[in-house]
Design a protein around this nucleic acid. Structure first.
Length: 419
RNA sequence: CGGGGCGUGGCCCAGUUGGUUUAAGGCGCCUGCUUUGGGAGCAGGAGACCCCGAGUUCGAAUCUCGGCGCCCCGACCA
C-alpha cells in the first residue's frame, strides 16, 4: 500500500472536540471517520485492523466448531413480540416500512437465530451446534460516547450455542472462556484482560464479561490478585465483597472496558419459540442455549487506548494495519534520489512478494523527512524501515521497532529474510 | 433523558460590552523557486450561506428567542 495514493491523509492536529484517546488518535491517523455521534466509517487503515480482528475471531471460533452465517439487520416486529422485547428493549431501533409494517434493526440476534435453528435442529443427533456471525448491530444508546467504545452502530461477533442439556452447555461455556482469552491474547490485550463475574445471567446467576483495564473504561471491576478473576462492581455486594473463586477479600478496583460478554441463556429464548428436540427416548425436550459476544470495534478502540504513546498508535503485531512502514527519504541530488527510489521500490516489491504487508511512504520531495517520521509514529506499524542516502552508503536499510529507540542497519540483500 | 461546555474556509482557531471586518492568523491545498534524518523556507494564489430560522437595529459573527449538531458529567445500558 502506497502512502502517496492512500485515500486518507493523516492530520497534524487531533480533532478538537474529542477527548477520548481512541477517537483522537484513530481520527487523526485516518483510521476512522465520525459521521454522527456514535456512528463511524472505517477507513482503509482502520478496516484492515478490523478485518484482522475479525479473522482472528473466525480462526479461533472455527477451531471449536463454530459455523459462520450472516443474518439480516432488518428484522420484523413479530419475532420481537414473541419474546416480549419489542416492548421491553429500550435501546431497540424501531422503524416502519412503507406499508406500516414495523421493523427493528438488529441489536442482538436471539430472535432471528432461534427460529432459524428450529428449522434445522430436530433431534439430539443435530446437537450441539454453534452458529455465529460478524455483523453490524444497532442500539439506540441514550448517549453515545468515548469514541468508538460506545456507538449506536457497531460491529459485533455474536455466537449462539445449542445444547441437549446444561452439562453440555457448561462444557462449551468453559471452552469459550479459553477461546476468548486466545482471541484477546492475539489482539495484544491478554495482560490487561480479566474474566469478570457480572450481572445479566438469566439461566445461570451471573454472566461473565471480559474486561480490559484502562482509565477510559466505563465499568469498575474488582480484581482478585490471587486467581486473576474479577467482579463487576454492579454485583460485588451480592457476592459479599469477596472473590467468588477463592474468597479473597482484598480486591483491587480498576476502571475497565467490556470487550466481550458470555451468557448462559438456558431456555430463555428457545421456549418462547417452542424450540425443542427429541432425545434418545423420544421425549421432547427444550434446547439449552448460550450466547457469546465480542465487540470488534471496541477491541480496536481498546487497543488504541492501552497501546499508544505521545507520538501515536502502537499496534500489536497480529492486528497491525500493515507489518512494515517503509520510508523513503528524498535527496536534493537527482542521481542520489533516483538511487534511493530504485532501492526502496525494490524492497517494497520484494517484501510484498514474500507476503509481508508494507505501508510504503513513497511521497516525493514536497513531504519533509520529519513529516514522514511523524506519520510513521502516528500510524503505528510495528516496524519502520528507512531507505536514505545515508543507509545506501552502507548498502543497507535502517530498521526500527515502533516504541523502541534502537535503530540498526540491515544489508539490502537481507531485508526480506530479516522481516 | 437531566446538567455543563462548545459551534467561524477541509483542520486548529482570533474576533463576541453591535460600527476601519472588505471576517484576521496558522495548518492543509494550488503555482514557482529553494530545501531534505524528526511535522522546512521564500514569493504568489484559491478557498467562508460566521450551525439553522425568526427577531431587535440605520447596522448582527457579535444582542434576543426558538431549533439543530458535537463533546463531557450523570442517569440508562436488553
Amino acid at each position: 500500500m502506497r502512502l502517496s495514493t492512500l485515500f486518507t491523509k493523516t492530520s497534524k492536529e487531533a480533532p478538537k472536540d474529542e477527548l477520548s484517546v481512541n477517537a483522537r488518535l484513530l481520527m487523526q491517523a485516518g483510521f476512522i471517520d465520525k459521521l454522527t455521534a456514535g456512528v463511524y466509517t472505517y477507513l482503509p487503515l482502520g478496516l484492515r485492523v478490523l478485518n484482522k480482528i475479525a479473522n482472528i475471531i473466525r480462526e479461533e471460533i472455527n477451531k471449536v466448531g463454530g459455523q459462520e452465517i450472516l443474518m439480516p439487520s432488518l428484522t420484523p416486529k413479530s419475532i420481537w413480540e414473541t419474546t416480549g422485547r419489542w416492548a421491553s428493549f429500550d435501546a431497540l431501533f424501531r422503524l416502519a416500512g412503507v406499508d406500516n409494517k414495523e421493523y427493528a434493526l438488529g441489536a442482538t440476534h436471539e430472535e432471528v437465530v432461534v427460529p432459524l435453528a428450529k428449522q434445522h435442529v430436530f433431534s439430539y443427533k443435530d446437537l450441539p451446534v454453534y452458529i455465529y456471525q460478524i455483523q453490524d448491530k444497532f442500539r439506540n444508546e441514550k448517549r453515545a460516547k468515548s469514541g468508538i467504545l460506545r456507538g449506536r452502530e457497531f460491529i459485533m461477533k455474536d455466537l449462539y450455542s445449542f445444547h441437549v442439556n446444561e452439562e453440555d452447555l457448561d462444557e462449551y461455556y468453559k471452552t469459550m472462556q479459553k477461546v476468548y482469552f486466545k482471541i484477546f491474547a492475539r489482539c495484544g490485550l491478554l495482560d490487561k484482560t480479566y474474566l469478570t463475574f457480572a450481572a445479566g445471567g438469566s439461566f445461570a446467576k451471573y454472566s461473565h464479561e471480559f474486561q480490559t483495564i484502562t482509565p477510559a473504561g466505563e465499568d469498575e471491576i474488582y480484581i482478585c490478585d490471587g486467581c486473576k478473576i474479577a467482579v463487576n462492581a454492579e454485583i460485588l455486594g451480592e457476592l459479599g465483597n469477596k472473590c467468588p473463586n477463592c474468597g479473597n477479600q482484598k480486591l483491587q478496583p480498576e476502571k475497565a472496558i467490556e470487550v466481550g460478554n458470555i451468557f448462559k441463556l438456558g431456555t430463555k429464548y428457545s421456549e418462547p419459540f417452542g424450540f425443542a428436540y427429541f432425545d434418545e427416548a423420544g421425549n421432547k425436550r427444550p434446547v439449552i442455549m448460550g450466547c457469546y459476544g465480542i465487540g470488534l470495534g471496541r477491541v480496536l478502540g481498546t487497543v488504541a487506548e492501552v497501546s499508544h504513546d505521545e507520538s501515536g498508535l502502537r499496534w500489536p503485531k497480529e492486528i497491525a494495519p500493515l507489518a512494515v512502514h517503509l520510508v523513503t527519504l528524498n535527496s536534493p541530488d537527482i542521481e542520489a534520489d533516483n538511487k534511493i527510489k530504485l532501492a526502496s521500490e525494490k524492497i517494497y516489491r520484494e517484501l510484498e512478494a514474500s507476503g509481508i504487508e508494507v505501508l510504503f511512504d513513497d511521497r516525493e520531495g514536497e513531504t519533509s523527512t520529519g513529516e514522514k517520521f511523524a506519520d510513521a509514529d502516528l500510524i503505528g506499524c510495528p516496524i519502520r524501515l528507512v531507505v536514505s542516502e545515508r543507509t545506501l552508503e552502507q548498502d543497507s536499510v535502517e530498521v526500527k521497532k515502533r516504541g523502541e529507540e534502537k535503530k540498526e542497519l540491515v544489508k539490502l540483500s537481507h531485508v526480506t529474510s530479516n522481516m
